[in-house]
Computed example of a mutant assay.
Amino acid sequence: MSDPVRIGVVGTGFMGRQHVEFIRRAPNADLAAVADPQASDGAFGCPTYADARAMLGAESLDAVIIASPNALHVETAIDCLSEGVAVLLEKPIAVNYAESLRLVAAVERLNGRLLVGHHRRHHPAVAAARTALVDGEIGQLVGINGIWSARKEERYFTDTPWHRQSGAGVMLINLVHDLDLLRYLCGEVSSVQAITSSHIRGHEVEDTAVVNLRFTSGALGSFLASDAAVSPWGWDQSTEDTADFPFLPDGVAYQLVGTSGALSVPNLARYSYAAGVPADWHSPLSRAYLPAAGHSSFHAQLAHFIEVVRGAEPLVSAEDASRTLALVEASARAAERHQTVDVAEFRAEHQGA
């Protein structure tokens, strides 16, 4: 049996504290140290340091989970990779696509082991949905509609000031998860349109965004994201990934429609016509639920990360996550300029810089 993986955590905010608990529950991981200028000695039952470099210099670590403010992601990850330490980096991979490319290059140069924390890809419902789409269970994909909306408490912004500053906002903190999952389920996006608003909270960054997507397959999609509006709809409310969101059984975040059926995710309700019934709008649809075992993205992600530490290929690489960030940034440009943005052209523009 392999020795437990010694993991350090950088950042003890909302996500950092969750990662600490996930490590404590994992049978093959040890919480070796924590780095955060606000962390007090003994608060986590392990050595604490003011920053990641101090922790790396003092501890012998196998891996580090980075849950620091977004603006620190790239530098901290490169520091860890330079020491030969594997990294689980919270999303977004960077504050912008150009910066993410610097990390992509560093991973290649250092032969680094890095997994980006788009945790929803690890959920069993996502694996089941992806298999159903690949197997053609709803026919050719025509379109997708999605929503993530939850009213965050004011303390979320006052206790953590960077949440209301450039480099945050509902697009980089929340929508990035959904756009990543739509890429994973439906394929690459060729072009995007978007509008944003900050009229509810009045912060420097947006609190609401609507994004329209054209996938390279020809399918179309639309997504609403807001951290200012009450709703029962969204990934977090529809799964048991985190206790911070009340769970809504049979909840829906995404609705996918195809030429011979439809599928909602993550509840995995598949709608189709019965055998022998005309496949048109006059016939009734039957509903059946696809099977999926388990319900925790984060625990599955940590288990996968431990395998990455030991040499496995990451499910979400730096290059893959950079494509998601490019899509988010292209959406922001579309909103700012009131125009359709070609995603491939956007990426090429930055790669040539």
Rank of each mutant, 00 (worst) to 15 (best):
D30I: 12
D30L: 12
D30S: 13
D30T: 14
D30A: 10
A33D: 03
V34A: 12
V34L: 15
V34N: 11
A35Y: 00
A35N: 04
D36F: 04
P37R: 05
Q38D: 11
S40T: 14
S40C: 08
D41N: 09
D41T: 11
D41F: 10
G42S: 10
G42T: 07
F44E: 07
C46Q: 02
P47A: 06
T48Y: 05
Y49L: 07
Y49P: 10
A50P: 01
D51I: 06
D51W: 02
D51G: 15
A52L: 15
A52I: 12
A54L: 05
A54H: 09
M55G: 10
M55Q: 07
M55W: 04
L56E: 00
L56V: 01
L56I: 03
L56Q: 02
G57F: 02
A58N: 12
A58K: 10
A58T: 12
E59C: 10
E59Y: 00
S60M: 06
L61N: 01
L61F: 00
D62C: 04
D62I: 00
A63T: 09
V64M: 04
V64L: 06
V64T: 05
I65G: 09
I65F: 11
I65A: 14
I66F: 07
I66G: 10
I66M: 12
I66Q: 08
I66L: 15
A67G: 09
A67N: 11
A67R: 04
A67T: 13
S68C: 14
P69G: 14
P69V: 05
P69R: 11
N70W: 01
N70H: 14
A71I: 13
A71Q: 15
